[in-house]
Amino acid sequence: MSEEEKKRKEKESSAGEEKGKFIIERRYVDDSRIIEPKKLELGGIDMSGRWGTLVLPRTLEDFDTEIYRDVEKLPRGGNIGKCWQCGNCTAVCPVAHAHSEFNPRYLIHIVKMGYTSEIKKHHEAVYLCSGCGLCSAACPKGVDPQGVMIAMSIAFKAHESELTE
């Protein structure tokens, strides 16, 4: 491992441990689920940091299909409903092989199901699409994932305020 890599790794790990670093099984808990107020007080007693930490459940509770309906209406997004989650698109996608956060099949699924909490976590990955079109050639159901990514990136941008709140 080169010096640079080591440094980067250290930086990454310390960044990951910022919140809830005292939790023994911290590595199993998503960053986004930890609420650790820097300042929390109740009845004059300081509960900030560790003593006021909460870990949100990861249950999927919402089937909010608003973004899905938008994607369907946007240019080239009309075929999203045809997707049956075979994963051909992700298999051939050159970007997905380099970036784990870009997974066209997954993005399509969370939009179709309307898992807002998941969309919040992953919506920015959609801009990684290079538009090479391999997925659309590989798709057995004519979903045109490349086009769906276009429609999705527009829809996510249009809903940006809700997705980053």
């Binding site: 659309s136 050639a137 057995p140 004519g142 979903v143």
Partner: peptide, 10 residues
Amino acid sequence: SRHNLRISTD
């Protein structure tokens, strides 16, 4: 050249 039955581009 890549056109086949499965292809679906706009």
